[in-house]
Design a protein around this nucleic acid. Structure first.
Lengths: 428, 428
DNA sequence: TTGAAAGCGCTAACAG
DNA sequence: CTGTTAGCGCTTTCAA
């Protein structure tokens, strides 16, 4: 075994050179300067990026098939490699590197150095095999170019890291509905739990069955046929706050640019809409005033156009997210309807741009960061063996009044946001 | 071994029940209906989401610590479990499940069924151990709430999947500069290559050293001290196209709301700016007209405000991305400067909202999707042993003229985009 | 056509 | 304090 280690070591070409001349460990000076002189690196920090006359090519083209690197991609050093270098057994190395029990200070130091010198990187695969767990959480996220989910995911990852866990993300692109495959990728890699942050979960027919009993799961979206704890924000309240605000401003004919109709958020926000009317004892001429959007600006624009064609009498619009609201504002502009003079607009989410549109956008702030933090915290507790809550965890939302509903901030009056943490400040 | 398998099997509580009464495999009806009756699941597809009176709680609160789930999280079935169920050795199962050579049709069928019944999910960790490779690529991505990178990452993942590779993403949040840690997380998991899509790579002092010789790497950003192939778009060209366009419109005093000054993109776009002037033989009163932004709308707003204070004589603004450009438009609005009448604005990237701002935003389209596809394609080739190109691969950009520079699309004239694939259509 | 042996890199328990 | 034995789940010879 010791010999095997040594034998392999001779062939091994790890991340750093070993057996380097002096005993001080490898500095890599030679290579370093060779690389620094390479024109392909160029004058760092000064000019064109990347430098030199660029080789502009078509989508598939590549330039000069040269240079596999000089520095080949070696194999990783193993515990045995470290061990033979330090003159101990690899089990002792394992103990040391995991901060284990009693080891002679001298040995410890020797091992530490050896590990450093060979650039030891633990093999989480092997460790996971024996530990039956990877200290890793998987996040299934929707297309991250959905701005809003991005904020959620990042917050969740930060929370995991804070608690000493690694995360890996599997992004579901907008064209795929097969969330199951992504779950599979993660569970094949034996993550210890999954945070589900892809709306596709609501419609995937057998996701629930695939997930059942497999792993601890916390989801942002209802998963069919799976009793997974849900964390989110109060969408009904969102609808209520938005529409109540419009009603208070005297609006009675409130059009809706809704999100995708299949989604629960959409239904909930519609419920809030209805509830706002009923609590005011105002009769509501509903479904005719609703147009479905697809959460994008383009979709919001088109839906608004359709709505204006059909119901030009609307004096206000409740739009299910801020990106669509921007499309709505654009559509109103093209139809020569002043916002908020002719039509008031309220969005949802409080996207970072909402404070800067013209006019600035009244919206309902959704606490994405908090949601991410809470959801991950809950998942971590479940992974640690804690109980799963049986009810949903809903975080509160709040109205942020700006100009698009006729509130506040006249032109040129006040900056839409304080310097720095603009979004935060305003939302408070 | 067989006995061990059986022994463990008795205790094992896998994703699906085994040894179920009938021979048809488990259907889970009992549990299913129990769950469906659970009020916490609510009336799917109809109303509030999540349903029932929500338990609105503070950030840390949780509701009813009840119900660990009924369905515990069992362990995964192993090859041995499948084997003992099919009455063969686990090696044979391995062969079958990997589409291996000659196996008796009957055995094959029996194994397939057994695997299905126990819900076998291969352990990629164990496989990776012996195969010395995971068929997985790592992507180090910046904060995915950066809309633009999200598009890149998703395209890259799609390309990987198309070629049969799995991907895992490690997101670097905006507050961390330690890209190295994320590389570590990925290489500990023995991904076979890394796609670096975090701008922090440009400033991390020892990322290059950590990466050298470790793995195949393709990067969107120059990595200090590492000869990694770069894929990106032609930022110099971007600056030139934008500014040349403004010059053609007669502008001579062109202010700049730049990106972060340390970044190469920023420098390159400034180079393009200068080049556009020099090719027109126009003298250029440069640095005084540049304000640094931070790529956010808020930052663009503030930078523009500062610039207008200092240089009210500008008649045009070259803004280094579309989000900042929105902030710029807002700032100009507050200062009562008409866009484009008093000040023309050109952005960069062609973000999905650019077509819908008021006025719609002239910008330079950056082919994020193509970049992602190409970068991943290159990485895949390198992982497969192919050579790394020594020069950068830069994809071409193109100007998209809209209203904010005085071009095109008067109010109410034409929809800013065709229905559906708006972004694409316009950019062509 | 199938199974037995070996070993990937690692941790855990125990013996020296 | 250190090394030995055992085994995690898997693929790969190679022998039966």
């Amino acid at each position: 075994m010791g010999r095997a280690g040594i034998a392999r070591q001779a062939a091994w070409r790890g991340p750093r050179a070993r057996e380097s001349g002096s005993g001080t460990g490898w500095t890599g000076v030679g290579e370093e300067s060779a690389i620094a002189r390479d024109p392909s690196l160029g004058a760092l920090g000064s000019e064109p990026d990347p430098p030199g006359e660029p080789s502009v090519v078509g989508a598939r083209g590549l330039s000069r098939p040269d240079d596999t690197g000089g520095v080949g991609h070696g194999e990783y050093a193993s515990l045995k490699d470290v061990a033979s270098r330090a003159g101990v057994s690899f089990q002792t190395v394992s103990k040391v590197l995991n901060g284990g029990g009693s080891v002679a200070p001298a040995t410890l130091e020797r091992i530490r150095r050896a590990a450093e010198e060979v650039g030891y990187i633990p093999n989480v695969l092997a460790r996971g095999l024996v530990m039956r767990g990877t200290k890793t959480l998987g996040i299934v996220a929707a297309d991250p170019s959905d701005h809003v989910l991005g904020r959620f995911v990042v917050a969740a990852e930060i929370e995991a890291r804070r608690q000493g866990w690694a995360t890996v993300v599997a992004n579901v692109d907008a064209f795929t509905s097969d969330v199951g495959r992504h779950v599979e990728v993660l569970s094949e890699r034996r993550v210890d739990g999954i945070l589900m942050a892809a709306p596709q979960a609501e419609t995937d027919p057998d996701l629930g069955e695939r997930l059942r009993g497999l792993l601890p799961v916390v989801s942002l979206y209802t998963i069919l046929g799976l009793r997974a704890p849900l964390v989110g924000s109060d969408h009904v309240q969102t609808g209520m706050l938005a529409v109540r605000h419009l009603i208070l401003h005297g609006h009675r004919t409130v059009g809706v640019v809704a999100g995708t109709l299949g989604r629960h958020v959409t239904a909930a926000r519609m419920t809030g809409y209805a509830r706002a009317f009923s609590e005011s004892n105002i009769e509501l001429n509903d479904s005719d005033l609703v147009e479905e959007g697809d959460w994008t600006t383009a979709g919001g624009y088109l839906a608004t156009m359709r709505l204006l064609d059909r119901a030009p009498e609307v004096t206000a619009l409740f739009v299910h997210n801020d990106y669509m609201a921007m499309g709505a504002i654009r559509a109103l502009y093209e139809r020569n309807r002043d916002v908020p003079g002719d039509v008031a607009v309220v969005g949802c989410d409080d996207a970072p741009v909402a404070a800067y549109t013209v006019p600035s956008l009244t919206t309902v702030r959704v606490p994405f960061e908090d949601t991410g933090r809470v959801a991950m915290g809950l998942l971590l507790r479940m992974v640690g063996g804690g109980p799963a809550p049986i009810t949903s965890t809903l975080l509160p939302v709040e109205l942020v009044a700006r100009a698009s509903c006729g509130c506040a901030v006249a032109r040129g009056t006040a900056p839409p946001a304080a310097p720095g943490a603009a979004r935060r400040t305003e939302a408070m």
